[in-house]
């Protein structure tokens, strides 16, 4: 497939727009000097990934990303930032100095090259079949299908994940709970 062919497909316009947004916001997440901005950029990057899932016909995953990530996880992050008193506003000390940033950049770029070249070498010009004209159903996974798959084929991993979530819940409570110091418990004792 030559480049002009690729550019003439309408979905690739959408893809390009989403991809550029995603990379730009992701770049800002890892470089910005404002903590809150980093979180908001992450929202944008995740929203872009949700859009990408919609483009790939994975509706349920897309909305799950929106609900779980953008809805819940981000709030958690904002709380984390506030509780740990991360500096709000512009802060130059959020990243390591150049001494570390440069090797890190080299390593991650090399990682990208390795993964990318492997992928390109493996799949070359393989195409994800577009939806044929007039059959919108093709290539779109209905939520019902995902549900059936989860509760039939993948029911055991599903249960395991539910246990994991419970364990994480308990673990987070145990870790984050503030054990009352002696004076505090004495104070409550006298109040009673």
């Amino acid at each position: 497939m030559i480049l002009t062919d690729w550019f003439t497909m309408p979905e690739n316009f959408v893809y390009s727009a989403i991809g550029v947004t995603m990379l730009a916001t992701a770049y800002r997440v890892v470089t910005t000097r404002n903590v809150v901005h980093a979180v908001l950029h992450l929202v944008a990057a995740l929203a872009a990934s949700a859009a990408l899932f919609l483009l790939l016909g994975a509706e349920f995953v897309a909305w799950t990303v929106v609900l779980v990530y953008i809805g819940a996880v981000i709030v958690l992050f904002l709380f984390g930032i506030m509780i740990t008193r991360a500096p709000l506003g512009v802060e130059t000390e959020l990243s390591h100095p150049r001494r570390i940033r440069i090797p890190a950049a080299i390593v991650s770029f090399a990682l990208f090259l390795v993964i990318g070249s492997t992928m390109v070498g493996a799949f070359k010009d393989d195409v994800i079949e577009p939806a044929p004209q007039g059959t919108m159903e093709f290539g779109i996974t209905r939520t019902a299908d995902v549900g059936q798959s989860i509760f039939q084929r993948f029911v055991i991993p599903f249960e395991v994940v539910s246990v994991l979530l419970l364990a994480a819940l308990i673990g987070a409570i145990v870790l984050a709970r503030k054990d009352p110091t002696e004076e505090e418990s004495e104070a409550t004792g006298t109040m009673r």
Partner: peptide, 16 residues
């Protein structure tokens, strides 16, 4: 993090 850099670099090195 410094160790993480070495880990990723090592991974790249091994894969290459």
């Amino acid at each position: 993090q410094h160790y993480a850099i070495m880990i990723f670099a090592g991974t790249v090195f091994l894969v290459v």
